[in-house]
Design a protein around this nucleic acid. Structure first.
Length: 587
RNA sequence: GCACCCGUAGCUCAGCUGGAUAGAGCGCUGCCCUCCGAAGGCAGAGGUCUCGCGUUCGAAUCGCGACGGGUGCACCA
């Protein structure tokens, strides 16, 4: 997806960026003319949609931002700037308002011009070169390979995947990665549980005591084990089968997880195994690197405060001086018996990411991992000497409801609702969209009945419906032998049309902001608003027949079809990022 | 006890990282609707942005301190 037709990239998609460029060059002219001092930082100069449409099309805060450093009256700067801007034929009016806002009104042609750009680009409309090909690693899901994915994983999976797509769309070179926690004690538990299912397959009665996984999903593994080993492992001591079963069961679980991800259309670029870090010198290498930086020492930690653990006693162990990189306390990398803590392979894994040459790292964790954020950031900061930023996004809990009642059961897993349960109920598109209609750090209520409702308060339906509506009009137009034409668009001047067109023009800017902040939910909210503007225009057509899309005059119809085609392209682009299929027809 | 996240309309949530009179959906109230083009439309009421101090031309947004809610605080992964 890196080689895009130049013609698309060359055309300016972002009208707000264009006008900002104009503002900046005018400010430069003022410097040349001596109206403004030479040494000014324009980084904070913004060109934005105004909060109130009555104020104009765009507003810039340039005068207010520069007033202090330039030691000048903001309104005076604004007036000087207005004079220069108005000379550009794209600007119809430039009015100073309030404390020094400069409200700009743009020519309708300029707005209308977004239509051919969107129509030509199609689902690539808004694609940006902002990321400049920087290599970003997005690590997400990374669930223990001990069972099927559950709802909590689902949110992380959807969020990570949409974020990866968003960054790709914004011009980053993205790698989607899954870290397989196949090195620790939980895999022993898995192997023992699989062994019980194996015994069961061999006709024995077994009991799942505490510390084993009772879920049905291991039944098949037991059967597969019987096929492979017959009864040769029955009554054998653990030491004879544990290693083999760890491997076997982990592979089976990863197949299960891959199948779960597949249900949501998620394809990882890379799976990284924790196990591969052991016995290969990679952990030692990473710790040595920290040691060489003077960040490893032998010491004794203070007891945890406020918890009064009864079994706590001071012990000397190998510690990482994470406090030098912003953590609250130093963290152990080795246990007192000399073996690695779980943190050590995590350090090695992130060291490996740094060494693979990524410019940025992003980890998606569940909210219950909030406690690891600081230490992971400290590790990456130390290992990369501050060169590689690590952003960690925590996804909050998902609360499931059915008709307003909390919903907790799962047939397959016994104790939790699986990803498959959810997708089977509502489908991948609804699952994905709903999970993205909230900021990642806000809890999410997911009501099975509500998300399938066909009404305005269901954003999934509302956005899909807009896409289908456009499609239905285009189909009808096709039957009438009329098609979109993007040459002259001067008939599109109605308020409702201009509102819609201006919303379209915001898309490239919004996309870049969403990518900059790693917030895919902004795309979902934008699509809802865009769909709302389209539906509003449609409804206006009941009264004002001149805004209906299909008119007797085929020239005018062609222009309107171009407009809704542009909306369709934008919806497709946005839904594509969210990983939701735009539908052509409501059933 | 400490750290992180959150606190915006009756409810569920946005609010573009400091801008103008704080928005949407639901719910409520009142009108309208059988439409190329079903799964609705328009309007209205509803706010001390938890509270207090501070930073400045300007704060829901930034800082500090309270208060309230969530999560986490091991040699577990």
């Amino acid at each position: 997806m890196l080689n895009r037709p130049q013609s698309i990239l060359d055309r300016s998609m972002n009208l707000f960026a264009d006008i900002r460029t104009l503002v900046l060059s005018s400010l430069n002219d003022m410097q040349t003319a001596g109206t403004l001092p030479a040494d000014l930082d324009f980084a904070n100069v913004a060109v934005e949609p105004p909060r109130d449409a009555l104020h104009g099309d765009m507003a810039t805060n340039a005068a207010m931002v520069l007033a202090k450093p330039a030691r000048a009256n903001p309104r005076a700067i604004a007036e000087g700037l207005a004079e220069l801007l108005i000379a550009d034929d794209r600007i119809i009016s430039a009015d100073v308002a309030g404390p020094g806002f400069l409200n700009l009104r743009l020519s309708p042609e300029l707005w209308q011009n977004v239509i051919p750009v969107a129509v030509t680009a199609g689902a690539d409309f808004g694609r940006s070169s902002m990321g400049a090909g920087l290599k970003v690693n997005v690590e997400y899901v990374s669930a223990n390979p001990t069972g099927p994915l559950h709802v909590g994983h689902t949110r992380g999976a959807v969020f990570g995947d949409a974020l990866a797509s968003l960054l790709d769309f914004a011009g980053y070179n993205v790698t989607r990665e899954y870290y397989i926690n196949d090195g620790g004690a939980q895999v022993d538990v898995l192997a023992r549980s699989a062994y019980l299912r194996y015994l069961e397959a061999n006709g024995q009665q077994v009991e799942f005591v505490d510390g084993t996984y009772p879920g049905d999903y291991l039944v098949d593994v037991g059967v597969a084990l019987k096929e492979k080993y017959g009864d040769s492992l029955v009554d054998k001591p653990e030491s004879e089968w544990l290693a083999d079963l760890r491997l076997f069961a982990t592979e089976q679980m990863m197949d299960l997880i891959r199948a779960d991800l597949d249900l949501l259309g998620i394809k990882m670029d890379s799976f990284f195994s924790e196990k591969s870090l052991y016995g290969t010198g990679l952990i030692e290498g990473a710790i040595n690197d920290l040691d060489a930086k003077g960040l490893i020492y032998e010491g004794v930690l203070e007891p945890p405060k406020g918890k009064e653990p009864d079994d706590w006693e001071p012990r000397e162990q190998t510690l990482f001086k994470s406090t030098e990189h912003g953590d609250d306390v130093d963290r152990p990398v080795k246990k007192s018996d000399g073996s690695w803590t779980y943190f050590a392979p995590d350090i090695a894994y992130h060291f490996d990411k740094v060494q693979r040459g990524f410019d940025q790292l992003i980890d998606i964790f569940g909210a219950d991992h909030g406690g690891y954020v600081k230490r992971m950031k400290a590790a990456v900061s130390a290992l990369s000497e501050g060169a590689v930023p690590l952003d960690i996004k925590l996804t909050q809990l998902v609360k499931l409801y059915k008709d307003g009642e909390p919903f907790k059961m799962s047939k397959r897993a016994g104790t939790f609702v699986t990803l498959r349960d959810v997708v089977d109920q509502v489908g991948p598109d609804v699952t994905r969209f709903v999970m993205l209609t909230r900021k990642n750090d806000a809890p999410l209520d997911f009501d099975f009945a509500k998300v399938q409702e066909q009404s305005k308060d269901n954003p999934v339906f509302y956005v899909q419906y807009a896409h289908a509506r456009i499609n239905s009009v285009l189909r009808k137009a096709d039957e009438l032998g009329v098609s979109a034409q993007t040459g002259d668009l001067s008939s599109l001047t109605h308020d409702g049309e201009m509102t819609l067109i201006k919303k379209l023009a915001e898309w490239p800017r919004l996309l870049e902001l969403a990518a900059k902040h790693n917030e895919p939910h902004r795309v979902a909210f934008y699509l809802y608003e865009l769909a709302g503007d389209l539906h509003a225009l449609w409804n206006m057509g009941k009264e004002a027949h001149e805004v209906r899309f299909l008119q007797d005059d085929t020239t005018i119809t062609g222009q309107k079809l171009a407009m809704i085609s542009a909306v369709k392209a934008t919806l497709a682009a946005g839904l594509g990022i969210l990983g939701v299929t735009p539908i052509d027809e409501m059933r």
